[in-house]
Design a binder for these strands. Structure first.
Lengths: 144, 144
DNA sequence: CACGTTTTGTTGCATGATGCAACATAGGAG
DNA sequence: CTCCTATGTTGCATCATGCAACAAAACGTG
């Protein structure tokens, strides 16, 4: 084979990503944290995507409209998300979603908690190693 | 702050791992592949852990015994997993699980499919970059 | 402006993964 | 042999999800 070492590394990458995703679902089962995995993901997306509508979330997450509808309703019920009054908004279809102040606070709180445990996990890594890992992950997530 | 760059890298790592896990659940929803995510995880664990019993799986995955019982029953029903006759086995409690030939074939098939898509995703990476990524992931998954 | 079409959101029903608790069973300890 | 503990199974509930039918809102055409 032309690149035996590369093939082995790809296999290891595959196994480690499998393992990583297993640990992530594991963790999200055990720790309720302030937010569930899905809730956290939705809040992150809404926060990061100004002008988002429910259907945009569905597209981004490969979820059915109905699922997003219910999840968003739950978050709205918790007071974390609200529909934007589109008085000044663009005249598009659908309802624009945004985080409430409470939603932003919860998201920040959850992010801080997870970053804290990440900080511990990376305690033995040098600055350069952390930087390289972050860069490689970003590259992996955003090909092309 | 003492390490502003490191903090930024940790934040990016956090975000990228979030994004990665989102994409993984996304993918596992869309692609049925030969095996579902849970099935695949269980087969991988059973294959990698000789002498495993159902309760070991529950512990490793932070799952309830009942859940594992049902999943294993399903895999057994599909002929992918079987209880080992413990004639030669150690006289411990519980039933030892192992993959059948068919189970090993399915697992290999699923692994090959996912490694193929991984190969495409890493197409633009140099051998060294792939190696560094695999190493970093392994280190991240196995701290201490 | 009115009507029909398309987009977006909601709700009813079904499925699958999961947890808890009660129960069943098997292996070891005395 | 009897009891205890570890392991596994089953009944019931919950939650995330999908599909399909429906509802509502925005748009376009005449």
């Amino acid at each position: 084979m032309a690149h035996p070492a590369r093939e082995a590394d790809i296999r290891q990458t595959y196994e480690q990503i499998q393992e990583l995703s297993r640990r992530i679902t594991d963790r999200s089962r055990r720790l309720s944290e302030p937010l569930s995995f899905v809730e956290h993901s939705l809040l992150r997306f809404i926060a990061a995507t100004p002008g988002t509508r429910a259907i945009d979330i569905a597209a981004a997450f490969s979820l059915n409209r109905s699922t997003v509808s219910r999840q968003v309703a739950a978050l709205t019920g918790m007071g974390l998300v609200a529909e934007l009054e589109h008085d000044a908004g663009a005249p598009g279809r659908g309802r624009i979603l945004a985080l409430t102040g409470e939603g932003e606070a919860k998201l920040a709180q959850a992010a801080a908690a997870q970053q804290e445990s990440l900080r511990e996990r990376l305690a033995g890594w040098s600055d350069d190693e952390v930087h390289a890992f972050a860069t490689a992950l970003a590259r992996y997530n955003t090909p092309e």
